[in-house]
Write a protein that binds this DNA or RNA. Sequence first.
DNA 1: AGGGCGGGTGATAACGTTACCCAGCATGGC
DNA 2: GCCATGCTGGGTAACGTTATCACCCGCCCT
Lengths: 331, 331
Amino acid sequence: MKDVAAHAGVSPMTVSRTLAGGTNVRPDVQERVLRSVEELGYYRNENARSIRPGQTSGLIGVAITNIANPYYGTFALGVEEEVARTGRRIILGNTAEDGAREQQLVHDFLGRRVEGLIVVPTDTDGVHLARSRKEGVPVVLASRRVEGVDADSVVLDDAGGAYAATMALLDAGHRRIAYLGNTRSIYTGRRRYDGFVAAHAERGVEVDSKLALPGQQDVASAQHVAARLLDLDEPPTGIFCANNRNTVGAVTEITRRVRDGRLDAAAAPALVSFDDFELSDVVPTLVGIVEHDPRELGRRAARLLLDRLDGDADQSARDIVLPVHLRPTAV
Amino acid sequence: MKDVAAHAGVSPMTVSRTLAGGTNVRPDVQERVLRSVEELGYYRNENARSIRPGQTSGLIGVAITNIANPYYGTFALGVEEEVARTGRRIILGNTAEDGAREQQLVHDFLGRRVEGLIVVPTDTDGVHLARSRKEGVPVVLASRRVEGVDADSVVLDDAGGAYAATMALLDAGHRRIAYLGNTRSIYTGRRRYDGFVAAHAERGVEVDSKLALPGQQDVASAQHVAARLLDLDEPPTGIFCANNRNTVGAVTEITRRVRDGRLDAAAAPALVSFDDFELSDVVPTLVGIVEHDPRELGRRAARLLLDRLDGDADQSARDIVLPVHLRPTAV
DNA sequence: AGGGCGGGTGATAACGTTACCCAGCATGGC
DNA sequence: GCCATGCTGGGTAACGTTATCACCCGCCCT
């Protein structure tokens, strides 16, 4: 900045003022400064800028659990979209569903003086999140809540969606329905399983514990577990897949078997999936999808955060539950 | 840091030294300092740290064109993986295939003093990238190259893959083969189209310009264009989809029509796709996939950059071409 | 004509951190 | 016992930026 100032024949202060919007700088001086900036290829050091009191970094830290999952990619897109409207930027980190990495990431975000955090929390305690709040850096939890962390949150109607999905299978006459999903220690896993159980209870059908298989985080393990289900002496006639990773795994396994002739297409279990996913149209045995909008989830999370940053910082925590929608799919 | 120093009864310098690794600080003093850090919930201001001469930010800027595309998500995963091994972190931005946003993003990255950039460039001139290099911030281009920017790059064997894919269709007897892909102004679009044309030339088959349809960036527009192809008086018998967005669009349209009875399954065109994608196993009319590994692409890009950062900064630009592999899919 | 006022500009200090230099102290060799 | 040496710790200044204050100038009001 000093170089630019010298080049334009003004003081660094005038350069700073010009770059900050140009209040109280004569137009012709501004132009001279901007020309020097251009000529020297100068760009402001945002890090130095941010250490001055009263200055903000303009950064929002976003931590998601799986960057390769398009669901979370779309979520991040929604956050970015909303955050960009206020001139801020996101800095995105991947926790890979690992609590230690989440802590590291949050620590690092705070070190870079983010204005706020949007976190899809992993399955750990939230002391680092609570601390962030205490430091005056607001936190919004997305998709999952964390016990003991008094932060804004946006989640889906997990139980309601799972209930509706399971009910659809029950009403279609299925009595042996399997559950594929996350471990119950994860918020969404717990809630979706609860919905699954509630629907069974409502219809007076007992849940067969051999068919309730939580714990799969990725497609490969979901496929493996689906194979075990199909190999049972009395396989399920319907499967509720509690997230798109599990759906893709199950679909892959079923399709392979049908193609190989190991499984009769007519005998393939009916699927209902929580989460939409690409090419869901193409899947033959899928009878329903619990739809929701990850982009909207991101937008709402961002708006909660921005409200706190630009509006009232001291309001009490708000919890938003987004509706989901069961769409029967043509077969 | 001053507070921590006071609390521990030492000078800020000793706190700094302890946090930097503790050389020349007595173990008992270190412990006292760390206890104070813990107690006060202190975390170092990385921005302030980075403005000192000789200090690096530990940040790598990564700009991708579409964060919601799992292909680029996986790419980012590969970059992060490799970069994390050196204790660095990535800061991820989405350009949405928009040159102006890419420029903004790069400018912002430089302002935050990233150590290097990994960019999947959009279809613009690369002056901002060239400038970054001039400023001493190395750039690695991934997936696409930019004319006039003398930077390291990792790209796929686009032409080779497209050639093999098209050749597979030609050898299966197809003579009316459509092309769905990016605009030719995008590097990969150009190269893949060239491979498409080269295969035709090799076999002495003329490319029907009504069937060569570049320009689709997303699934919706690809689906729309696929519909137009199917509505032709003489529709193609085979389609080469030059990227996964176009494949998903074409597959969706074909499947819908078959299901509606508007298209006879036997008459559906055979597809070959550049890029693998989820559930590719399930798609009936897909006869081949040009596979490659986005994660490896990310890793290699990261390694090129790290080589320059931790190794020889002045070596001349290196260009890596990753092989692709045509996998015939069971039908 | 004099004083106040407001816009334009510059000097200074401070943000939080660490490189560099220097001082104190214990140790060891003679 | 004396000096060189090495380890430990503190003081100072500087990184690049901007808030604050001070100053100068021209204008308007009385």
